[in-house]
């Protein structure tokens, strides 16, 4: 049309930039909604992570080489010391193990007498922490075992000191583990000294957790031991979680604010154990 107000563009330039931004922003927001509310995006995430896997491994190589070099350079003296220490620990533990074997058979016997279900020792899988997820808003680490090794989302992860966290996402060759200090992880716990139950909730970035819904009347003290209660059927009961580090009155809620510190840390040892016994989804 000769009298048209909009003169046609001389060159084809596609959609205007502002419209393209709107399309991109809306699609990104939709994807976030999908990812947040449904697990439909899991295959997409798995696909990208599987393609990225060789590259992330490649980029971790210099660090791994440095670690290996550091270990090979350690003097024989310190290695000998470590061997002696480990042997002493082994002897000390063998005693406990023997006592535990006896207790377990006794316990099975009693449970049989009471017609209760026997507590089954489940399969475990050793894994190593590869890296921490760099996002500062989450306390998540990546371990070197995935669905190929039979890991499922929700599996508890422990080391020799106690509970570390829980598997949150599984990829074919790696998995993400949410640490106890991650805000999105809650574990039902038990304070053996007082016999009170509660729930942990991580405080991201502080290597600590909050103890929620504990009994108002309980006289919690700093240093109290916190263990898993096993009420969720996911964690075996009685695993060490941490110790109480501070108690303060909260202004708003009737519950006191109790914070604790995890006893197990991935900063010290990188070897962890995944408990595959229950394997139920979170």
């Amino acid at each position: 049309m000769a009298l048209s107000h909009n003169s046609p563009a001389l060159f084809h330039q596609g959609l205007p930039a502002r419209l393209r931004l709107v399309v991109a922003a809306v699609s990104a927001t939709l994807l976030m909604q999908l990812d947040y509310h449904a697990s439909m995006t899991q295959p997409l995430r798995q696909g990208i992570n599987t393609v990225l896997y060789p590259f992330t491994e490649l980029m971790m190589m210099p660090r791994d080489i440095l670690i290996a070099l550091g270990e090979s350079l350690r003097s024989g003296q310190s290695l000998r010391e470590e061997i002696t220490k480990t042997r002493e620990q082994e002897i000390a533990r063998s005693e406990t193990l023997l006592a535990m074997d006896k207790l377990r058979s006794e316990n099975d016997n009693l449970r049989g007498l009471l017609a209760l279900q026997k507590s089954l020792p489940g399969a475990t899988l050793a894994a190593e922490v590869r890296a921490a997820r760099p996002a500062p808003v989450h306390d998540v680490v990546v371990i070197d075992r995935g669905s190929e090794s039979g890991i499922k989302a929700g599996d508890p992860v422990i080391n020799s000191a106690g509970v570390i966290g829980q598997v949150s996402r599984v990829f074919p060759l790696t998995s993400e583990v949410r640490l106890l200090s991650d805000k999105q992880l809650s574990v039902p716990v038990f304070l053996p000294r007082l016999g009170v139950r509660g729930l942990t909730r991580g405080i991201t970035g502080e290597d600590a957790f909050e103890l929620r819904h504990v009994n108002l009347a309980a006289s919690i003290q700093i240093g109290d031991v916190i263990q898993t209660s096993g009420l969720d059927g996911l964690y075996p009961p009685g695993l060490p979680i941490g110790i109480v580090t501070s108690i303060s009155e909260s202004g708003l809620s009737p519950f006191p604010v109790v914070t604790g510190k995890p006893v197990a840390s991935v900063a010290v040892t990188r070897q962890v154990l995944v408990l595959q016994s229950r394997g139920a989804k979170q």
Binding site: A28, L31, M32, D35, Y36, N49, A135, H138, E176
Partner: peptide
């Protein structure tokens, strides 16, 4: 997003 384990779409936006 996939690498950092955050919500898919965050970095895209």
């Amino acid at each position: 997003d996939a690498h950092q384990g955050v919500l898919l779409g965050e970095h895209a936006l």
